[in-house]
Each structure stands twice: as structure tokens, then as C-alpha cells.
Design a protein around this nucleic acid. Sequence first.
DNA 1: GCGCACATTAACGTATACATTAACGCATCC
DNA 2: GGATGCGTTAATGTATACGTTAATGTGCGC
Lengths: 244, 244
Amino acid sequence: MPTKTVPAKLHRAQTRTQPASAASGGRRSLVDKAYREIRQRILDNVYPSGHRALEQEYADQLGLSRTPVREALLKLASEGLVEVLPRHGARVLPVSPDDMRDIYDMLTAIEPMAAELVARKKLPPADLKPLIDASRDMSAALKNDDLDAWALADERYHRLLIALAGNRLLAETVQGLWDRAHRARMVTLRLRPRPVNSTREHNAIVDAIRAGDATEAARLYRSHRERGSKELLALLEKARISSL
Amino acid sequence: MPTKTVPAKLHRAQTRTQPASAASGGRRSLVDKAYREIRQRILDNVYPSGHRALEQEYADQLGLSRTPVREALLKLASEGLVEVLPRHGARVLPVSPDDMRDIYDMLTAIEPMAAELVARKKLPPADLKPLIDASRDMSAALKNDDLDAWALADERYHRLLIALAGNRLLAETVQGLWDRAHRARMVTLRLRPRPVNSTREHNAIVDAIRAGDATEAARLYRSHRERGSKELLALLEKARISSL
DNA sequence: GCGCACATTAACGTATACATTAACGCATCC
DNA sequence: GGATGCGTTAATGTATACGTTAATGTGCGC
């Protein structure tokens, strides 16, 4: 295969926890079903960037009427994953390098704050164990050359840390940003050198948190994020990827 | 395959900035009408914190059917202004001091980043003039003991600065946070001592931006935000306000 | 061929109809 | 008295119907 193309199936992104009745089996609303399904198809590149379809077409594909599909699309639009073009359907929003810069600027602002908040809480070490586990899984995945597993563990690490900050608003915002950047991360994952520094940086952040040094935790997280951001943007530039 | 031309209009229903179509009068959709109207009533305390009504009741009050009202309520829910309680209508979300802390932690993370981005752009001084004007209006309002005018100018200053950062995502996020905090700000406005420091701090931030000193701009904005945040939270505590 | 008025189409935005089910009252049972 | 089961009610979630209007096609004058 001479041309490098986006893998048809990017790794399955973890589905966000939805309110309430998720535990009670498959009793979710059709809006929720449509939302999850379409979101997953976007993240998995089943609906690739730029994919466009009418409300009725999405409805047909999911075996639903327009109403719940429409609500789901509006929600996805509010999260920046699709764009509703009246009379032209809804299309999966491409993510340009400029968009990625915006997203990473936001993450660079918010995630260090999360680390800072966690550090200030002086949590018992046991609460930080999942973070350390995630870091260890990243190392292990790297050793096995399993980049998908690495990406999953990386995402888990960041999600755990965000959750520990105890600010729901922050967690939701960051998750939305990660969603938007998901496809680009998955693509660059295989274009970049092996991410050997991340584990060390992650551990350093945990150490600062454990020491209760909020300023240092924030500083480390910020430089971690800035380095990642710079690398990713450089890759997109180098590969002349104008949108994903 | 001939590509269909898709009008590249961005139809994001921007809350405050209703562009261009102002000329065409009231051509907005009913969803948008419902959204704006309900949002305004919440911000103006016409629907006070905790106010609850059924979808049909909102629809009756606005003279619309349930469909556009429902979509508007879902949007407001996604912005954190209301909460949809199945079978119990939608209620205006109270904002607790904890919520305010979360909101201000987010603002403390994001707004300094905005100042940083603006400073890095090395804009021509003319572009910063509106900021300075807003600052001046704040001073004037304070001299006239017109706290409402002061609050408006303060909001204008922050909105302008956010806009100059050139990151739409950031601007929308911050605006959403300001919306959530709006009522609390309005209440504390009259409980607190006259905000005499803000103007000086605002001007210092502009100076740092003009000097292209991104780090200093961010630092100043952060301490400005932290001071404001601390004052506001202390006031809520002191007044034993458990929710707004 | 070209441009324009007008008819046609199709997708959406909105209204309405309908099915589902949580919430409530009430009678019954212990 | 209090708990429990059951029928009723009502609000929602979803489907469908309908009017509007942007987009497209058509015919005509030139």
C-alpha cells in the first residue's frame, strides 16, 4: 500500500459515562443511543472527517425517526464534533491544524490547573495509585510496541487525573477537547517517534502531586502538554495534513 | 464525482453576537427565539434560581409548541443554566458556592491563557484601544456610583480581551462560564466594597500585552482573577448564601 | 448558448399525535 | 398505623404530519 491513509478503524475510544440509568441494562433513550452511536462512529472514523448525511439518512441507518437523531446531532454539534448545515445535513467537522492549536492551547491552560487542584488536596497515596498504574501500563505497552494500548493508558492517566481534581465542569470540558482531538492523536500516533518521555513526565507529575507541590505539579503538566502539543503540530505540518 | 458546493456559512447561534442578519429583522428560528428568551429571563432573574416549569408551560409562556422549546432547553442544559428533570420539567440550576469555586477555577486557568495569547500576537496598539476604553468606562461608572454600568464595562473588557485571543473555543467556553456566574456576580456587586482595584489591574494587563510580555500578562490576569474569585467566595460565605 | 422568471422539489423547522412509563392516589392487607 | 399492590394520570420521548423555503430544474426570450 503505497499511500499512507488513515486507518479505517481508529482504536475504540472509551465511551463517556452517561447520566443515570446506564447501569440498568439497555434501557437508554433513543436520543442517547443515537448520540453514542454517531459519536462512536466519528471517533472510530466510520464516519470520517467531512462525512455528510441528511438527518433522515442518519435516522435510517440507526433505524430511528428523525426526532431523536436530530437531538443527538444538535448535541454533537454543541460539542464540536459535527456541524449542522441546514438543508445539507450534518457533517463531521474536519479538524485543521489551527483547530488543533486552539484545542491544545485550551488543554495547556486547563490541565495544569487540574494537577494543581489535585496537589492541593493532599490526597492519600492510595488515591494516586490508579495514576501510577496507568503510567506503568504505558511503559508496558511501549515495551510491547502496542501503540493502541499505549494511547489507551495515556488517555486513562489523563482522565484519572482530571477526575481527581473534583471539578465536574473541568472534567467535562477536557473530555470534550480530547474528543475533538482524538482522530488527530490516533493518526499522529504512528507518525511520531516512540513516546518514550511521557511515562517519565507522568511519574514526575504524580511525584509533585504526592509531595503536595501544586505549583510544581502545574508547571510539569504544562511543560508536558506544551511538548506534546508542539510535537503533534509539527507532525501535522510536516505531513502536510491540512485537516483530519 | 462533482462536488456540491456547500455554503460555508457558520450558523452557530452565537449568543450575543447576532451577525449580519440583523438587517433581516426577526428572521431567527423559533428554537433560537426560545433559547434567547429563556436564557435572558434566567440571567435577569425573571426565572430565578430553582424556578421549575414543564416543557408545555415554557411553550405556553412563549406562544410556541413544545418542539422548539424542548430543543432550547436542551441547549441551555448543555450550557449548565438549567437542568432537565424527566417528568418534572426543567429547572433553573441554582449555583452554590462550590459551583462558583469550580467556575472560577476554570476561569483562573483559561483567562490568563487568553491574555498570554493576545500578548504573543504583538497586536498594533489600535487593536487594544477598545480594552482601554472599557477600562476607562469602568472608572467613569465607579465615579458615578453606577454599579450596573461598571459591571457592564467590566464584562465588556473581559469579553474583548477573550475575543482578541483568536481562539473561538476559548471564547465560547469563557462566555459560558460567565453566564453561569452572572447572577452571583450581580448579587455580590452590591455586597462588596467598591471595586476600586480592578481598573488599575486591567490597565496593568493591557500594558503587559502592549509590551508583548506574555508571561507577565498571564501572571497579572491570574492574580486579578484569583483576587476577584477569593473576594466573591468570601462574600458568599459571609452572607451565608448557600445558592443563587 | 445565456440569463432570468417561474414551477418544482426536497429538507428542514415546527406542530401535533401517539406510546410509554414514572408518579401518585387509593384501597387493601398485615 | 404503615406498607403494599394496582389503576389512573400526566409528562415525556418518539413518531409522524405539515408548511416553509432554499435549491434546483425548466422554458422562454434573446
